[in-house]
Amino acid sequence: MANRILLTTFTTLVFIFLLGPLAIIAAASFGEASVLQFPPDNWSLKWYANIFEVKGFLDTFKTSMIVSFAGNVFALLLGLPAAYALSRFTFKGKAGLQTFFISPVLIPGIVLGFSLLRYIIVTFNLPIYAALFIGHTIIMLPFIVRVISSNLASFDFSIEEAAISLGASRIGTFFRIVLPNIRAGILAGILIAFLESFNNVDLSVFMTGPGVSTLPIQMLTYVENYFDPTIAALSVLLMLLTAVLMFAIERLLGLSYFTKN
């Protein structure tokens, strides 16, 4: 019984600790005053309207979406074959390649961001968009490779041989036999990578310039100048977006997908 009480207390504390700040921000976003207040004196939706009035939020949201989407597609095109090859074949340097594909997670974003700035923008003089795109592809790649690899780890490759023995080509087998069986892993990889990219600050901060910025960077810039609840309102919308995505994942695969591997 005492255990039960202790457990309930701890669980409640953890939830307060995790959800408390979110609740405070959500509540503050509905305040009327032009500074963040908790609890707010008066209620209003005007800061939500303000998101769309302040120059930049909508544009940078679009930029973020484009960069995360395009980078995601590219990371998938690189990551899926890589994950497949790493799971399917044994070859020299395999362990090295495995480390290589997860290395972006190990390197601090700031270091990665700075080196990309140094080379892509300064040395090769590429447009900022290209730099953003390349940078985000790099940070998404490890998530795609990892999640798909863990899915492929339980994949029985003899079914591939079975398909080939029944007359299917190697390519046909990949699309008709391998892909349908790792669909869940691919989807999960895409979504996790997308969230990682969409929320990224440390890398993007080096790759923004005149006219090009991502939403998190724009938010950072905004809070440097204003203390009103616009950011709180925007955060609530982003949380909602993330929640919808997570809900979609949960419905499609079950959240256990992320804890399993």
Partner: peptide, 17 residues
């Protein structure tokens, strides 16, 4: 393999799940 027209029965059945 895919041009041979041989049937292969695997130890672990290898059915398409």
């Amino acid at each position: 393999v895919n041009k041979r027209n041989f049937g292969f029965v695997f130890q672990n059945y290898a059915l398409f799940p």
